[in-house]
Amino acid sequence: MKSCLIVDDSKVIRMVARKILHELSFTTVEAEDGQQALDRCKEALPDAVLLDWNMPVMNGIDFLRELRKLPGGDKPVVVFCTTENDIDHIQEAITAGANEYIMKPFDSEILQAKFSQVGLL
């Protein structure tokens, strides 16, 4: 079973994502902001990270840059999942090492399509 870290400050979004990911046979861990997510990653690196952009304490893009500096931190497949939907944000995410990018609102079909594109399914 593959593992996915869900990072979003919205409880509702985490719940929706958790439900979809469980249906896709992932185990899930959750974090409410980038700092919590980084702490989880230091304990154990997940196979995948579903990552919001705008969050308190540490945002998604800063988390991603820190993650990629960790030993083995290049391994997790990172899929952004955010309301930011302009080319500049997407470009910045790719440059920082994101593997895929979902623009909210999303549904299970989009999440599934994106996860299979990056080889997680």
Binding site: I87, I90, E100
Partner: peptide, 20 residues
């Protein structure tokens, strides 16, 4: 639509070949 470009299109190709 945003929905249509997210089903099957890799993000790198969206950035490269699409304009908002």
């Amino acid at each position: 639509s945003q929905f249509e470009v997210q089903r099957g299109l890799p993000i790198q190709l969206l950035v490269k070949y699409f304009k908002k």
